[in-house]
Design a protein around this nucleic acid. Structure first.
Lengths: 245, 245
DNA sequence: CGAGCCGTTGAGGGGATTCAAGCTCAGTGG
DNA sequence: CCACTGAGCTTGAATCCCCTCAACGGCTCG
């Protein structure tokens, strides 16, 4: 399937019929419009963009007027917020199957910076298109699917507080590794953030992030594959989490 | 207006017509069904409960099968989660106008414990009733209002991470006081949690919470009214937040 | 009026931060 | 080809903030 850089959409006649694309899409069952039948998909023909972003590319910034919602087809993105004191804080991660930028459906500006952590494949859904489906009998199931995604994001945010922002650095890091592992590619290779970014996720300094990670590496919980990738030993990770001290 | 304990609903014939109640409701404009016209309200006659909870009463527990969504008419509730290590962590607060327990709309169990912090007035909306409105032309605006509330909760959760779970204890407490002040009653009297609860909100010990609060008291940022209530000096609070050290 | 809960404050220790020094490694140009 | 450079990672040492343990006083309530 063609990969289209975020700033340039391929010409319409170069792209396959949307119905074929969405039907073949490997995240269809999990994705927002997976519930649509093929007839509905035909109506969306050529109106869904499929942008691709390299790692560290900004998808949108907090305050931008949102024109599109996105579904993540592959890769990992992060949501950042800058505190009043000027420090940045990562408040959430999104992976395959997640819906992002929902604020746009409400004519609100985006609430956070959204940045690609790894190369990312997206589906771009113009808000006008989604709104149109609301009145359409064939699209009547969309709102429920939408609610479900919204609630999923909310659950995630609450878990972020309870797991990644609670307790000593070592435990926070363990929870983060578990999440990153859950977002890993099929071969089990997971994205490993820069130390300074780990710090922004856990609210610790990059030195503490480095020390804690080195500890877990020596304990065999993680093995570094290359500078930006790792492999997680789930058994050891769970064991480390269940130790009390 | 009658106050009905959570465990007992008043007999139907003792309650006024729902349309009159909702029309007169002081949170109508902000509340979920504020967008309904009087005709639609008549249809809901006698089907919306108006329970009242004393402080510290549990509204529901995580895992309960959710049969109702609630709108907060007055008071403050908190959402708690127990971590795998057995510590409780407050992950969100809800106040006047907020919608809570939305998971129930998706036939999901509630995700957190919901507990009254102060005496609380609610509107209880059985899920079956809300679902019925989806097909109803008169209720067609409900989904958008729902989305808006869902997104509001999500924003809140992200801000909780960025403000209440980031930086030194003093700054976290300042952000918490600002929030509690925003939930204060019309006279400016705000709820003051127990120190151990402040700790569960900020992920600090009760001693640190006590010490930090005492500092702010001595600095004139807060004045304690009684054991469970305070008054916040907003100017000094903002000033304290804008100091760099 | 004693029991118990809650809040405050102190003393000491531990984990995280701060400051700082090397290290690896990729990119660059002599 | 290889020093040169700079970014990112690791590790050490000193400091500080917060936690732990502890004592004590106020308040409520049986």
């Amino acid at each position: 399937m063609d990969r289209i850089p975020i700033t340039a959409e391929a010409p319409a006649d170069a792209r396959p019929w949307q119905a074929a694309v969405c039907t073949a899409c490997e995240v269809r069952r999990e994705a927002l419009f997976g519930v649509l039948d093929e007839h509905a998909l035909d109506r969306l023909h050529q109106r869904i963009g499929q942008p691709w972003l390299p790692a560290d590319r900004v998808l949108y910034r907090a305050g931008d007027a949102g024109a599109s919602v996105y579904t993540v087809r592959a890769g990992v993105l992060r949501f950042e917020r800058v505190t009043a004191q000027g420090e940045r804080r990562v408040v959430r991660l999104a992976g395959r199957g997640d819906l992002i930028g929902q604020e746009a459906l409400l004519q609100r500006p985006y609430g956070d910076d959204a940045i690609a952590c790894t190369p990312v494949d997206l589906c771009r859904l113009p808000v006008a298109l989604v709104d149109g489906l609301h009145d359409d009998p064939g699209g009547s199931r969309v709102p429920r699917e939408l609610m479900s995604r919204w609630q999923g994001a909310l659950d995630d945010a609450a878990a972020w507080v309870a797991e990644l922002s609670t307790g000593p650095a070592r435990r926070r890091l363990l929870h983060l590794l578990r999440r990153l592992d859950a977002l890993a590619d099929p071969q089990g290779l997971a994205w490993l953030p820069r130390r300074e970014l780990i710090g922004a996720m856990l609210d610790v300094t990059l030195e503490t992030a480095s020390r804690s990670l080195s500890d877990l590496r020596r304990a065999g919980v993680v093995t570094l594959h290359d500078r930006r990738h790792m492999r997680v030993d789930r058994a050891r990770l769970e064991q480390a989490l269940h130790e009390q001290p």
